[in-house]
């Protein structure tokens, strides 16, 4: 029974800091297996959510289950099976890399030393180096190695590629590909590197102001989120915004730019009914979609005015 439960399930999760909500009524469901990307602008609540899942922060309201366990009551059991890499990890500065690794090893029931050694060689993290003497990027990599060491069922990575050069970033991606190839592994990561997300995510979720605005398989998202540029010979249909799938209509001079969320075929069929209407379907990248959603609530008809 427990095995069929999702990797993460939250219901009405809320966290307020001095009355200000950082996460507000979040209902998030992350299926087991695969890579789940948490996206959203700064301050959307990604880091807070991850810290809540680890019980570093206490929820103000709502429920959380991680790997079938209550994330608050069974937090230690959860953390035994979860690897975590913080956005900016603070370490004991005067500790050696090797010492830190063997200490962490002693805390977990399982530890894959062979893999840890391999990653340390790859990332050039010598056991005798002092943690405080490592560059910021290397510290991020060390945190990543520490996160994968215990062979966790769930990896929670908060911006794993921040501040890394392209070579290191690519190495981190390969590490993630290797991790996700293991049976039953789930990876949740937050990132602003949307091209990396496009490379490895199975599913993406957008957070905005502490709430979830969408959670969909990446390919479905890219297939459904389209823009259609239309030039109607006469006045545009009055009910255009209420057509199925239409999220937003912006004016571009005499043309209209329709943002669609699914139902592309239906909309195209409707458009073909208008004699002389010219239209073109535009693909969107994940970044376009991100900006579109994060940009939020500019009101219809007023944006994109270029005359």
């Amino acid at each position: 029974m427990a095995i069929s439960e999702p990797a993460v399930l939250t219901r009405g999760l809320t966290k307020t800091f001095r009355g200000r909500p950082a996460v507000h009524g979040l209902d998030l469901e992350v299926p087991r297996g695969g890579v789940f990307a948490l996206l959203g602008p700064n301050g959307a609540g990604k880091t807070t959510t991850i810290k809540l899942l680890l019980n570093l922060l206490q929820p103000s309201a709502g429920e959380m289950r991680v790997l079938g366990l209550d994330a608050v009551a069974d937090s230690v059991a959860v953390r035994r099976r979860v690897g975590y890499q913080a956005e900016s990890q603070h370490f004991y500065r005067n500790t050696g890399v090797g010492e830190l690794l063997s200490f962490c090893r002693s805390l977990y029931p399982r530890w894959n030393q062979e893999r840890v050694d391999r990653y340390c060689r790859l990332f050039e993290l010598p056991a005798r180096a002092r943690v405080g003497g490592l560059s910021k990027g290397k510290q991020t990599l060390l945190a990543l190695v520490l996160a994968v060491g215990p062979e966790p069922e769930l990896l929670l990575l908060d911006e794993p590629a921040t501040g890394l050069d392209p070579l290191r970033r690519r190495q981190v991606l390969k590490l993630l590909v290797e991790e996700m190839s293991k049976e039953g592994r789930t990876i949740i990561f937050s990132s602003h590197q949307l091209q990396d997300v496009e490379r490895i995510a199975d599913r993406v979720a957008f957070l905005l102001r502490g709430g979830l605005i969408l959670s969909r398989p990446l390919e479905q998202l890219l297939a459904e989120e389209k823009k259609v540029r239309v030039l109607f010979p006469g006045p545009p249909p009055a009910e255009l915004e209420k057509w199925p799938g239409v999220r937003r209509v912006a004016r571009e001079g005499s043309r209209l730019l329709i943002s669609l969320s699914g139902r592309l075929d239906e909309v195209l069929v409707r458009l073909q009914r208008y004699e002389g209407a010219a239209f073109d379907v535009l693909d969107q990248t994940l970044e376009d979609i991100f900006v579109e959603y994060a940009g939020g609530e500019e009101s219809v008809w007023e944006v994109g005015e270029d005359d």
Binding site: L54, H90, F91
Partner: peptide
Amino acid sequence: KKGTMAFLLARPVS
């Protein structure tokens, strides 16, 4: 202050 408490409590330590 330095966040090492968070480092430890993210691991299986009650």
